[in-house]
Amino acid sequence: MRNESRVYLGIGSFFVLILVIYFVWSRESTGSVLLLASAGLGLLPGLYIGWWSRRMQQRPEDVDEVAPRDITGVVGQFPENTIFPFTLGVGAWLVGLAFVFGLWFAIIGLGFVFGAAIGATLESKRASLSERENRV
């Protein structure tokens, strides 16, 4: 994980550098605030990942030579076909259109959004219970 955090830290520290130069030189507020936020966006995940990388064992994808015992086991759980992202997308779209055509679009849209939220939650629960290792 060390290199992942360095990617973020590298970009973040570069922003700190140009933020200092830019602010001292121009005293312009919009750009300085934006650069400050960008520096935060770079440093925050960088420091977090770096903090974790010191506390965890090296993952198989971080080592040059992989031992056979490192490459067994579960990669992850991946969902199957589901309608709810589409429902959520349509809901978000209708809420967006409400800003142009009137509030009533948002009422329909929010219906879709909440429907998708409830549906996706129930679906996830059902799916994870169907996995052998998740059964109690």
Partner: peptide
């Protein structure tokens, strides 16, 4: 859900 094992 589909559980994936390491393919190697």
């Amino acid at each position: 859900m589909t559980t994936l094992q390491e393919p190697l």
